[in-house]
């Protein structure tokens, strides 16, 4: 069942982009859109958008880099681990939960490392790989998306993003404990 689902979704993922390109162009052509001219018109914005993001992304990644390299994460883990072990989160997986919203590459590295140490099919291995997929890198998304429209006052976006992360991690922990914790 899960195998079939995987095959189907993988197939859709592969054909999605060529299909979309064909549909957009075909539909446009049939509606007498001047496809080439319109494409170039739209594509012009690509450069400006990318460049607009730069200051926001530099600000965000620089702060995250300083935080990560200082070893502050270890301090945070040692403070929080008594509380989190109470809800059944193994101390080894706590850094994953904390790093996930901050850094995509960092949490990918951490997941790989934990999988090597504990084995991918151990409870910790399954839990951290579930956690990795259960949330996006909130601060990166925040910087890129708001940066592209020059929004500086993000209002409630940060608490909302962090609540989403928190529930993603709790959901991952809950379902993994139900299904795989022996």
């Amino acid at each position: 069942m899960s195998e079939l689902f995987r095959t189907v979704v993988n197939f859709i993922s592969i054909i999605a982009i060529p299909l979309m390109i064909a549909a957009f162009l075909g539909w446009g052509f049939s509606k007498k859109v001047k496809v080439y001219e319109v494409f170039v018109e739209g594509a012009k914005e690509g450069f400006n958008t990318a460049v607009r993001i730069i200051p926001y992304l530099v600000a965000m990644l620089f702060a995250i880099g300083v935080f990560r390299e200082s070893g502050a994460m270890d301090v945070l883990v040692s403070i929080l681990s008594p509380a989190t072990s109470f809800i059944g989160l193994p101390a080894e997986a706590l850094p994953m939960a904390l790093l996930r919203p901050l850094s995509g590459s960092g949490s990918l590295g951490l997941m790989t490392e934990l999988m090597k140490t504990h084995g991918p099919d151990s409870f910790i291995g399954i839990l951290v790989s579930t956690m990795y997929g259960s949330s996006e890198t909130t601060f990166y998304v925040l910087a890129v998306y708001f940066g592209s429209v020059q929004v500086k006052n993000t209002r409630h976006a940060v608490p909302v993003g962090l609540i989403a992360d928190l529930f993603g991690m709790l959901g991952a922990l809950m379902i993994c404990r139900m299904l795989f914790n022996v």
Binding site: A23, V33, G46, T49, I53
Partner: peptide, 23 residues
């Protein structure tokens, strides 16, 4: 950010066509 330029341009171009065509 600079790595985004190419894909951004490609997709923004395609989306613009889809928009004009009413898709």
């Amino acid at each position: 950010a600079l790595g985004l330029i190419g894909v951004m341009a490609l997709w923004l171009g395609l989306i613009k066509i889809a928009e004009e065509a009413g898709l």
